[in-house]
Design a binder for these strands. Structure first.
Lengths: 227, 227
DNA sequence: CAAATAGTGTCTTTCAGACAATATTGT
DNA sequence: ACAATATTGTCTGAAAGACACTATTTG
């Protein structure tokens, strides 16, 4: 093809990885190990290899740049950011991904050289992040918010077994507003295939024990759970 | 950065441009002028230039490859396709876009070398298109279908002035099913800022004359118009 | 018992969808 | 008058949201 006429472009895969920790919506960030923006907090990501799919690249970078061993329960492409000046040095097009994970047993961890750490999404949204990572994070958050309405994405924030109260907390933290426990309960159970009972009960804390559920087979919610 | 370690990748911008012509949902295709797949029908698109935004590239390719002078009323990024083997020769990542246009006065037209022509979406969906263009077209169609529900995208298929009947026809053709005229009428008028009356009336054909509307200021529909 | 959380019941409003009825034109 | 399209009206059922109420646990 036109190899000479069209100088190639560097392609990276970045990822907005969300989880809920300490009753907070958090995002995984890495401390940049090289210029530009050395030492600054940025979204994890890196160059796509010649024979690698975009999704693979996002997953690999997650493993390399951070010590996140467990794969995200959910991973989807978000959007591609390609403004010519988005990187001050080279022309780099970034294919951003959105990932969602249940809170890990081991908190931050940091085996490799790169420092990976969880941060409050609210705080990261306020900060000015390097490159166009502020826009990417904002878009990722909005995507997650929107998908809670009509998809079963919320279960990706939960461990295998969870209570309706925990699921509700996911919605509350991502949407940033409290929901009526009673109405939520009914809506979730009324949405075909969203969650299935395990038969088990109890769990933690004070108050009446709750039934324990697992993710159901549904991918989309009928009817949806609106913001 | 790692220029040596990470061989660059070619980036193209492709576009699924939809319109309604001859009471049919149609998509703009070009006849490929070079290998691979020389002579085959494919989605318009081409290489992103070094200092060009992705959106710009999509628009430029549309102008270059086809004689579509008028800009699409709507243009958004669809998704990025980057399977390593999606192009049999080089590693090419394609940032696909979705465009929507009102039916042009001049039908196909074809000034440049490349042959551009409108085709029934239904037929193109059935066909096996080169590269992964079948998947891209399918995704583009699904995006358009979904966006009719909660956005004002449908008006992008219409000229400046249109009747509710014409707007309904957009929904019917994109969704592939007939809608109740009465219910549609009420829903559209009840959706804040979707369309505004021009005061004018009449238009064409048989039957009671219809009021003429223009696109309103709203971007999203409250309440939505569900499939 | 008080506080906390889980879960159920009730009521009002909104809206979707089916379908009937009326309005106004061209043939 | 008839066919076609626009527009309005009526009814039923689903679901959202507010909120009261019951159930069951811990402290």
């Amino acid at each position: 093809m036109a190899e000479a006429k069209y100088p190639s472009i560097y392609v990276t895969a970045d990822i907005v990885l969300l989880t809920i920790r300490d009753d907070q919506l958090q995002v995984l960030m890495v401390e940049r190990g090289r210029e530009p923006f050395l030492g600054r907090l940025a979204l994890p990501g890196g160059f796509v290899k010649p024979n690698e799919d975009l999704r693979e690249a996002a997953l690999r970078e997650l493993l390399e740049e951070t010590s996140v061993r467990i794969k995200p329960k959910h991973l989807e492409q978000l959007a591609t950011y390609g403004a010519p000046d988005r990187d001050p040095r080279d022309r780099i097009v970034s294919v951003a991904h959105l990932g969602v994970l249940a809170s890990l047993p081991e908190p931050t961890a940091g085996t490799d050289a790169a420092e990976a750490s969880w941060h409050s999404v609210t705080e990261m949204i306020k900060k000015r992040l390097p490159f166009d990572h502020s826009a990417i994070l904002k878009d990722g958050l909005e995507r997650a918010r929107a998908k809670l309405e009509y998809s079963t994405l919320a279960t990706a924030f939960c461990p295998t077994n969870f209570t309706i109260g925990e699921l509700r907390r996911v919605y509350e933290l991502v949407w940033g507003k409290e929901l009526d426990p009673g109405n939520f309960h009914r809506k979730v159970l009324g949405s075909e295939g969203f969650i299935v009972p395990t038969g088990k009960e109890r769990q933690s804390g004070r108050g009446r024990p709750s039934a324990i559920y697992r993710k159901g087979p549904a991918k989309t919610l009928h009817p949806p759970i609106l913001r």
